[in-house]
C-alpha cells in the first residue's frame, strides 16, 4: 500500500506542479512560471500540506514575492490548506531554462528571447539578436541593463525600433 500511496502522491504532485506553473510572471505576464522555468519541485508533505520550490531569475528579483503569493493563492483555490513556497538558489537558474514555448511568447510580445548558451561557456558572440518587430538581425546594444534586471536594451538598425532583449544568464 505504501507504494500505491506514493504513486498517488506523485500524480498529485504533477497536478499541483502544473497548477503552480500556470501562474503568470508578474513582470512579464505573457509568460507563465512554467515557461520561465522557475518552479523547481512540488512536494506533498502530508494531508493538505504542500511545499513548492521556486528559484529566482536574479538573486534580487523583486517579483519572487508576488510569484510566491500567487502560487499560494492558486493552490489554496484548488483545496490545498497549507502551502509553503521556499526559495532555492541551486542549481542556479539560467535563461536556458526558459521553454521553447516561452521563447515563442517573448518574441510575440516584442521581447527578443535569450540566445542558448554553448554546451560549456558563454554565448557565442557571432549569434546575433533578432529584432522582434521586423526580424532583422542588424541590431545594436544600447545598454546591458534595461527595465528589469533580466533585460538588456537594444535597437534595430533596420526598422529603428528600440526593443528589450531577455539577456543571457
Amino acid at each position: 500500500m505504501v507504494s500505491g500511496a506514493r504513486a498517488a502522491d506523485t500524480r498529485l504532485e504533477a497536478e499541483l506542479r502544473r497548477l503552480a506553473g500556470s501562474v503568470s510572471d508578474p513582470e512579464l505576464p505573457v509568460l507563465t512560471l512554467e515557461d520561465l522555468g522557475v518552479v523547481r519541485a512540488v512536494h506533498v508533505r502530508g494531508a493538505g500540506r504542500v511545499e513548492v520550490e521556486l528559484t529566482p531569475t536574479y538573486t534580487g528579483c523583486p517579483a519572487i514575492e508576488t510569484m510566491s503569493a500567487d502560487i499560494e493563492q492558486v493552490l489554496h483555490e484548488h483545496g490545498v490548506a497549507e502551502v509553503s513556497v521556499v526559495t532555492v538558489l541551486a542549481p542556479a537558474w539560467s535563461t536556458d531554462d526558459i521553454t521553447a514555448e516561452g521563447r515563442r511568447k517573448l518574441t510575440e510580445f516584442g521581447i527578443a528571447p535569450p540566445r542558448p548558451h554553448a554546451a560549456d561557456g558563454p554565448v557565442s558572440l557571432t549569434l546575433s539578436v533578432r529584432c522582434p518587430h521586423c526580424g532583422s538581425t542588424e541590431t545594436e546594444l544600447l545598454s546591458r541593463f534595461s527595465s528589469t534586471a533580466c533585460k538588456a536594451l537594444r535597437r534595430c538598425v533596420s526598422c529603428r525600433e528600440p526593443f528589450d532583449h531577455f539577456k543571457e544568464l
Binding site: 538573486t59 538558489l89 541551486a90 542549481p91 542556479a92 537558474w93 534586471a149 544568464l169
Partner: peptide
C-alpha cells in the same frame, strides 16, 4: 549556491 548564482550577475 549563492556564489554560483551571483557570479553570473
Amino acid at each position: 549556491g549563492l556564489a554560483a548564482k551571483a557570479v553570473k550577475e
